[in-house]
Design a protein around this nucleic acid. Structure first.
Length: 453
RNA sequence: GAGGUUGUAGCUCAGUUGGUUAGAGCGCUAGAUUGUGGUUCUAGAGGUCGCGGGUUCGAGACCCGUCUUCCUCCCCA
């Protein structure tokens, strides 16, 4: 009785949207394969033990948890229901919807490490779910397109990611974008340097907002989070780096005492070098110390891609994680990957008017029919036309011609064939071009020839 | 998770300080046109006013709750 509705933050994709989305998926998939990545799919939901603790506290909260089926209540006692919700959640929910594709991938690698060809390169295009508040460009169900390499420390992988992005985005029509790159090791070094070792989490979150809220607000936030005034003084050089001509050199002199930071800088320089050798013309990469990213598992390079000229969050993000498989008991497998957000890319393309109009019509030719006899005659022609490579359909009811033509018009079908008793007798069918209204009498071979080119 | 905002026909929206039978445009259906769509004309169908309570003689309008929309935080694709 009640009106149907969509769950919050979810959407249907109609035929028109799907044609466009498939264009994006196909483009991304083609490039992934061209770079040697193999396809993988994992289940929509995982055991919570796999998911929990991988995305930080915030992430755990944003996980969609699945209520145990059956009598979940029987395994709890009265005290569970009186106490806080988190311990109770653990007792009544053991599974959750995946939050990203990287963690399930790490799980897969660990479970199949004996059989995988290392380094293992996989791509994965599937929806993920997050229980946060929907906004523009933010949904509770959305698709990610991931490409990851595990089992090698080579910084070529980082450079290849830059290459991938420079292959995919322009092919979608997105010419003006920036690949922001940073390295977690640099951030770790900075944290140690200012005497806030181990505090890079909150430090990153605050620094990340520099270009949004400005230097003073960042300092304010850090003080609130318990950083000492001395730390802030030591942190001062970071604010100059944003405008630096040669940021790597400045970083090196500032952080010379930190071994970790120096390694991070060396990695960054190597990535820049490899990108140049790889010959990507005019690479749109930018070093950004303030780039932090909240996902807690990153340990090396960090990426984020912004489409310029639109008010939509980042369309892609990624980085290197040294110990993601370690949390599943198999340390020492380093990985690096990138994730493209199809839904945001769609929004960007729509805002920039990058979708071609034509992509929509799939039917090229429709047969009309005036009566039962014409209907049967038309049905008999379908295979011939389709075998000739023409996307063909016949109107399924012998209703008024007006209605049939109206249908063809609305579906933007370019050609219609009129079949009546006259046509059946002569074998000459009327081919009508919907846009111009031109009609000509042709036999079936003539129609196929007319539509062939 | 915090704060704000929105919801009336399939769509976009009117609806006065609470007052009788809730409107328009577009779209839809049928006809004008028994073998010709996109233009025009005519007629028609379509609404538990998001949902649930409350105030009132009377609620689309006021109050409370809830869901949803969009926005700012938080965080992210």
């Amino acid at each position: 009785m009640s009106k149907p509705s969509l769950a919050r933050g979810t959407r249907d994709f109609g035929p028109e949207q799907m044609v466009r989305r498939n264009f994006i998926f196909d483009t991304i998939r083609r490039s992934f394969q061209r770079y040697g990545f193999l396809p993988l799919e994992t289940p929509a939901f995982e055991n919570l033990s796999v998911l929990m603790g991988k995305y930080g506290e915030e992430g755990d909260q944003l996980l969609f948890k699945i209520l145990n089926s059956g009598d979940f209540k029987s395994k709890t006692n009265e005290q569970d229901w009186l106490g806080p919700y988190k311990p109770l959640t653990q007792k009544i929910s053991e599974k959750g919807l995946r939050y990203d594709l990287t963690v399930p991938f790490a799980r897969y690698v660990v479970m199949n490490r004996g059989t995988l060809v290392m380094p293992f390169k996989r791509y994965q295009i599937q929806p993920v779910w997050r229980a946060d508040r929907p906004q523009r460009g933010r949904y509770r169900e959305f698709y990610q397109c991931d490409a990851d390499v595990v089992g090698t420390d080579s910084l070529l992988c980082e450079a290849e990611i830059v290459g991938l992005l420079h292959a995919i985005l322009p092919e979608l029509g997105i010419q003006d974008f920036t690949v922001k790159i940073n390295n977690r090791k640099v951030l770790t070094g900075i944290a140690t340097m200012i005497g806030a070792s181990g505090q890079e989490g909150p430090l990153c979150v605050a620094i990340d907002k520099l270009d949004k809220i400005g230097k003073e607000k960042v300092k304010e936030e850090l003080l609130q989070k318990g950083f000492h005034q001395d730390s802030l003084t030591l942190l001062e050089p970071i604010f100059e780096l944003a405008h630096s001509q040669n940021p790597f050199a400045d970083l090196k002199s500032w952080l010379s005492s930190s071994e970790v930071a120096m390694q991070g800088i060396a990695e960054l320089e190597e990535v820049w070098k490899l990108v140049n050798i790889a010959g990507i013309p005019n690479p749109k990469i930018q070093f950004d110390v303030t780039l932090a990213r909240g996902l807690s598992y990153y340990t090396g390079a960090i990426f984020e891609v912004k489409a310029n000229g639109v008010q939509i969050g980042s369309i892609s993000g990624g980085g290197r994680y040294d110990n993601l498989t370690g949390t599943f008991g198999v340390p020492g497998i380093s990985g690096v990957g990138i994730s493209l957000g199809v839904d945001r890319i769609y929004d960007v393309m729509e805002e920039l008017g990058l979708f071609p109009d034509s992509a929509q019509a799939t039917t090229q030719l429709m047969l009309t029919n005036f009566d039962r006899q014409a209907f049967e005659y038309g049905v008999g022609l379908l295979a011939k036309l389709r075998n000739a490579g023409i996307n063909t359909e016949i109107y399924p009811d012998s209703v008024k011609l007006k209605k049939q033509l109206d249908y063809a018009d609305r579906k933007q079908i370019p050609y219609v064939v009129l079949i009546g008793s006259e046509e059946i007798q002569s074998g000459l069918l009327t081919l009508k071009h919907m846009q111009t209204g031109d009609q000509q009498k042709l036999d079936i071979a003539g129609i196929i020839a007319a539509l062939a080119h």
